[in-house]
Design a protein around this nucleic acid. Sequence first.
DNA 1: TTATCTGCAAACATTTTGCAGCGAG
DNA 2: CTCGCTGCAAAATGTTTGCAGATAA
Lengths: 137, 137
Amino acid sequence: MSEASAERVPRATKQRAAISGALADSERFLTAQELHARLKRSGTKVGLTTVYRTLQMLAESGEVDVLHPGGSEAVYRSCDAAAHHHHLVCRDCRRSVEIESEQLERWTDTVADRHGFVAASHTLEIFGLCEDCAPSR
Amino acid sequence: MSEASAERVPRATKQRAAISGALADSERFLTAQELHARLKRSGTKVGLTTVYRTLQMLAESGEVDVLHPGGSEAVYRSCDAAAHHHHLVCRDCRRSVEIESEQLERWTDTVADRHGFVAASHTLEIFGLCEDCAPSR
DNA sequence: TTATCTGCAAACATTTTGCAGCGAG
DNA sequence: CTCGCTGCAAAATGTTTGCAGATAA
């Protein structure tokens, strides 16, 4: 008998390993191109297309977080928490801290509800300068 | 005597009038291309380039709000409130309600501070389906 | 008059897709 | 052996820029 449902089990290729590895090593958000450059520099030959495709997969499976700051380049970071959360991100170096707030979640739901909106979701990111990047230490 | 500083006083062209007019007439967020199409349809001949340039100006001066949902196309809406605020936006028709919360503002500042981040700003948008767009009314 | 605005066409930056060949299972 | 993965080149998308001519002040 075969399996009932076709589970999507990605193949273990060395490109995929390199990509999630490099991502896991960084505590900063990286663009696809930055990641690609890092891999190239470290000797791993991976196509930019593959980087994009892999990041997309990892994002869908929740293994990485994606942000679109300012609407330009997307930035990616491997995700520590399994649950829904937000980020405090350094505008300069893009180092980031994961944020959670049960109260915030409740508040956004309440706001949506109060205005007759259903199936509410939300995005929240806080930007600032981290201690290392702030001027006049 | 001439003025001390060169104030940026935009010229009153009919293109600019048409653009902010059309924008003011919509309670929904619109993309630059949608706006361009509307203007064309209503008989006003305006170049897409001008639409982009004008929207950028209006956004900088705070007359319109800009969102980059999902990181793809930017969407614009004329801004009612003068103060900092957020939006509750319908995922389907992009109708939107402006949201304000002194408490939220304080919370984000506190979070940033607690982690040693300075000069904090933030983005927050709530998405949902408005009453007209929600299925099974 | 004259500096700004307009709009076309072309440049741009980022991301996606087509397709032939490679390689994991 | 097979079918998914890879990577090149090309397409697609959304936005910006160069420049010559139109136009508000």
